[in-house]
Write a protein that binds this DNA or RNA. Structure first.
Lengths: 117, 117
DNA sequence: TACATAGTTAACCAGATGGTTAAACATTCG
DNA sequence: CGAATGTTTAACCATCTGGTTAACTATGTA
């Protein structure tokens, strides 16, 4: 069992729930950096992108560094690792439908059941 | 590069962004099933839990089966697999701070940089 | 100085979210 | 039938979200 900071996970998953932000992360991963550049492919205003960046920043998914008037963003993937660890705990449930099968068989007998190995 | 259905990922990540729902999934994984039972540990009304379950259901994270008046929930983790795959693409960014280091070094020289292997 | 560029902040809006209580629905049981 | 149980639906509310435009701050440049 991995230790999870609830608030951090909230922010990370919420940040990932928006497709614009996922695209921003992906551009970030390919080397794009400044706000204007990151904004270009997204058909929306600069302030909108700015907000997305702030959300990603608060989730810890990117770090910002200012060089004059240019803000350079940097992907920070550690929070993704934490999220991945959380998700991993459910891996056994999608690998092998064994559990689901066992579950199903018990259910066809109907009524409660204690399961849990 | 894995193929990602944006709408599906939106729903899954959004579903995971709430701690109550993550807890529900974890109880589900341990064998709890019916609504009342899943609701008990969460200090909130039954309708609130019902809403959370519906969100998890729409994200494809659980399946519902009715036995009389009892609704039995079943963890469906495949969408989590998809989410994990998305996250996995960023693994190299948290394994080895190599990229970040290279990036940092370039930045200390200041100015643009093309990077990207 | 004056103008252009990079980006944020402010004010606003429509719609979603997460919760509530009260009522309804569906099923089981005496 | 009538009452209890399991769950959802309806109506409501406060707050958050994701977008807008307009105005502002800060920096670079002629």
């Amino acid at each position: 069992m991995v230790k999870h900071s609830s608030a951090a996970l909230n922010r990370v998953f919420a940040a990932l729930a928006d497709p614009t932000r996922r695209r921003i992360l992906s551009h970030l991963a390919r080397g794009d950096k400044c706000v204007t550049h990151l904004a270009r492919p997204h058909d929306m205003s600069l302030p909108a992108v700015s907000k997305h960046l702030r959300i990603l920043e608060r989730a810890g998914l990117l770090r910002r560094r200012r060089y004059g008037r240019v803000h350079e963003m940097q992907l920070e993937a550690k929070p993704l690792k934490q999220a991945a660890q959380w998700v991993e705990e459910y891996r056994k449930f999608w690998e092998g439908s064994l559990d689901r099968l066992a579950d199903y068989l018990q259910k066809t007998t109907r009524q409660s059941s204690k399961k849990k190995t």
